[in-house]
Each structure stands twice: as structure tokens, then as C-alpha cells.
Design a binder for these strands. Structure first.
Lengths: 253, 253
DNA sequence: TTATAAAAATGACCTGAATCAATAAGGAGC
DNA sequence: GCTCCTTATTGATTCAGGTCATTTTTATAA
């Protein structure tokens, strides 16, 4: 098994400590500047084209990948040959936390669009885990958050019907964008309808119909991959979620 | 918020290093005896009665719980008041890995039966994570395995119908028992039909019907909570899974 | 033991979302 | 511009599994 062909772009930072991205792959946010100085990791950046595979299910794990820009889907193939999308990874997300355990990736990872990633040698991570308690803490929280994220998704699948599920999906994206300094009211879906359907355990036709319904209810405006939230409260409502207590209208966007 | 009332049983080991249980809560299996010596953790054991709550959603997290015997269900209540069982925790399982992140539990945990647990102060865990690289490795693998476990469950929900789901659930239990030195062909379900239904996103009636079906197909014999696997291969088959390559008939049980 | 309640099983019926089928709208290449 | 092909939308029909209703079984208490 050959290692993926990694290309270095000299015009981009190749040390985490110098990275200016807001995506905060390694939990920099937790300790701020003090942690930043400990992050003397060399990374290799790489650009993937749409539909290009980053990892195959079964690949040996020695590298953690961080999404810098673009989007990636991780999916599994069942023994009966069905595909199931596990997650969409957006800038700041890590790929491979679930592979530490077995030493092998157990998902495919495919770029949904032109995507830039950082490859972090896991030995470097282990070295930092040994030397920096702040990093250790941040990394643990990262893994813990990963578990919680999956659990929340299980709750979504178990308690929401198709309509609520799609609305909840849009809410999650809106919140992601807000957390990353972008507009929560206008964003682009990097994945196709059929990817959304697969992820949410629905049929493509159902997703399409529900987008139309949300639109007819003046909840959102959807034009292909462009989403514009018309009424955030009613989107939360459609998702069966309470909007956070802070007022949106009081903020910019 | 008061800390749960912890009772020490002097006749039971209260140090992990002395624990003789096969459940292997802290990944002893990974490094064998050498790790065992490093595990100088004091634990507090506690017995829960059926339906007794171990933690409430929102409780502050300062303790990791390990199941010693019995069984516990972890569940979340949605904003609309619905319950969703996230997982069943059996001896050897840890409760609270998802709480490290936020510092609060985000699940209820309720005993399904008389259950004995160990309470591990998380500061002790952190101390060990600092001092022992073997422990650190084992603990990471534990968290990573937790992520993978959830992902596999998402795949089950997404790709299997009701019949396959119930069969897969029984397969998982059979494998758990085999991994813990018990019979994979005869075991007891510690949870009610309605818990199984909730966990698998099915109606109780459906679970009941499918047990009957599996029984009529001579796959299993189910008498209340007692399960006897009549034909392991056809159970795997019903689950849409391939049985592992090793031959069962060649082994004891 | 019997009375009462809770859990499980079974049947009849209904519905949300899948499937099948047919258009419609984009996007890529020429 | 136009053609080809993929993706998305909309409608008609079907069905897996949910809901409601009833019976049976098991557990608990007196």
C-alpha cells in the first residue's frame, strides 16, 4: 500500500504554529496563544479535486488529516455493499480519530469539492501529547466532542422525522458557519442532494420534496446548492429545536 | 448539586491494580501486566438497584464510571421531551467519555438491573495520562474505539431494516459475551423489549414480532430475557453480516 | 393461593417515506 | 449557441413498520 502523494505548497504555512486559519484544527482555541507556541508540528498540505479519495477503508493509519478548506465526506461500505455516509467534514474537522484504535482507517474519505487538507503525522501528535498537558487536554476534548457529536446524530435519527431531520441538518450547518465567522443565514451546500439523503437516511426524492416544503413555508430559499435562511426561528422550529437564547437580530447576521 | 452517595465495599478491590475482573475497564489488555502495575488508582465501588439513576443529564463531570457487573442504559431527552437510548453499557464499559469535552454529562445513566460500578476520579485518570505513556495509549484507543462504535451503529441504523437490526443487535451481544469468556450462544438480555425498541428505533410491537420471527426461523430461542442462539450462522445471515472466518464449531461454544 | 399490575405477544389497520416513473433544469464539452 | 449527461424536482403508487386494540404471560403484593 503506497502512501498518498503529498504535495507541499511553499506559499502556505507548513507549521501549525504559523497557521492563520480560523478553522482551529488542533484545539488552539482552548488555550489561546500559550498553546499555539507549543504546536511545532510540520504539516504537509495537499489539494484534492472533487470526488478524489483521501483515504480508503482499510488503509493503514499513520496520519491524521485536518480539513483546511472545502469539504469531505466519510463513508462506509457495508458487507452487503451498501454505502452509508457517516459525516461531512468541514474546515477545522479532523479525519482519523476513529482509526487510532485499530491502526486502520475504517471509512473512505472523498472530497466533495476542491478541498485543501493538512496531513499530520500521528507520531508528532503523540509526541505533543507526551510533552504538552495543554495539548493533551485539548486533544482529549476533541475526541470527547467527537463521541458526543455522533451521539447527538443518533438522537436525531431516532427522534426526528424526515422533515425535522432535514431542518436540523440545515440548523447544524448554519451554526457551523456562525461559529466560523461566516453568515449563518447564507451558505453553500457542498454536498449533493443524494449525499444529504444518504447521510440522513432518506431517499433523494424525499430530500427534494422537503426542500420544496421548507421553501413554500418561507423557512429557507434553496437554489441548487445555495441556501438562504429566511426565518431562523421557524427553521429551528421545523427542526424541533429551540433557538439559542441569544437574539440573532441583535447581532450582525 | 450533591455528589452521588458512594459506598465502599471493603471486601471488594478498591484499586484498579488489584481488580481481578475480566472486564478490563482501563485497557489493561493492551499492555498486559506491565500496565497493570501502573494502575495505582483508588476507585469507589457502588451498587445500583434496578431503575436507579447513576447520573443525570447536565450533572457536572468529575468522575468516570466503569461498569463492573450488571447493565446500564444511557439516554438523552430531546427538547421535545422524547427519550432516546444511546447505548447499553455492560461490564467493562466506561460511562462519561463524551462528557470530558463539556465538563458535564449529557446523558442520563440508569441501571437496568442490580449493577455494580466503579467511580474513577478523573483527576486520577489525568495524572496517569501524564505519567504513563502505555496508559495514555490505551486510553486513547479506548476513546477512539468509542467513536468507531457509534459510527458502526449509525451504519446499522442507516442500512439495515428492522429484522436485520434486531439480528445485528443479538450478534453484537453474542460477540460481547464471547469476548468476555462467556457463552455466545446463551445469554440474558438485561433490558426490556421497550428498551431494545427505543435503542433500535423500532416500536415495541415490531421487536416482539421479530423475536417471534427469528424464533420461527430456528435462528434463536427467546424466552423473556433468556436468549439461546440455535444457529449462529443464520443469525449472522439475518443481520446481513458475515460470520467471522474462525469456525465456532471448532471451539468450545 | 389469588388479585393486580406490568410486560410481552399478536392481530387489524393506517401512514410516512420509499420506490417507480416522468420531467425539468444545470453543467460540461464542442 | 446546441447536445449529452448528470442532478434535481414532482407525481403516482406501494409497503415496511408504526399505531391502536386485544389477549396472554409474567411479576409482585397481599
Amino acid at each position: 500500500m503506497t502512501r498518498p502523494n503529498i504535495v507541499n505548497f511553499p506559499d502556505r504555512p507548513n507549521r501549525c504554529a504559523e497557521c492563520t486559519k480560523v478553522c482551529q484544527c488542533l484545539g488552539l482555541n482552548v488555550e489561546g496563544g500559550s498553546l499555539r507556541t507549543t504546536l511545532d508540528i510540520d504539516v504537509q498540505t495537499r489539494v484534492l479535486h472533487k470526488n478524489e479519495k483521501l483515504v480508503n477503508d482499510g488503509d493503514r493509519f499513520h496520519t491524521l488529516y485536518a480539513v483546511r478548506s472545502g469539504a469531505i465526506k466519510t463513508c462506509k461500505t457495508t458487507e452487503t455493499g451498501e454505502e452509508q455516509i457517516i459525516d461531512f467534514c468541514l474546515p477545522g474537522d479532523l479525519i482519523g480519530l476513529d482509526a487510532i484504535h485499530s491502526g486502520r482507517f475504517n471509512c473512505h474519505a472523498v472530497a466533495l469539492d476542491t478541498t485543501s487538507i493538512c496531513a499530520l503525522d500521528f507520531r508528532d501528535i503523540e509526541r505533543l501529547l507526551e510533552s504538552s498537558s495543554a495539548f493533551r487536554k485539548a486533544f482529549f476534548q476533541r475526541m470527547s466532542a467527537g463521541i458526543q457529536r455522533n451521539e447527538n446524530f443518533v438522537v436525531t435519527l431516532g427522534t426526528r422525522d424526515a422533515y425535522q431531520r432535514l431542518a436540523a441538518f440545515l440548523v447544524t450547518l448554519a451554526e457551523y458557519h456562525a461559529d466560523h465567522g461566516c453568515s449563518r443565514l447564507e451558505f453553500v451546500l457542498p454536498m449533493s442532494r443524494s449525499d444529504i439523503a444518504d447521510y440522513l437516511n432518506l431517499a433523494v426524492e424525499t430530500v427534494s420534496r422537503l426542500f420544496s416544503r421548507l421553501q413554500s413555508e418561507s423557512c429557507v430559499q434553496v437554489k441548487r446548492s445555495a441556501v438562504r435562511v429566511m426565518n431562523l426561528d421557524s427553521l429551528y422550529n421545523a427542526a424541533g429545536m429551540h433557538p439559542p437564547r441569544t437574539s440573532y437580530s441583535a447581532r450582525m447576521q
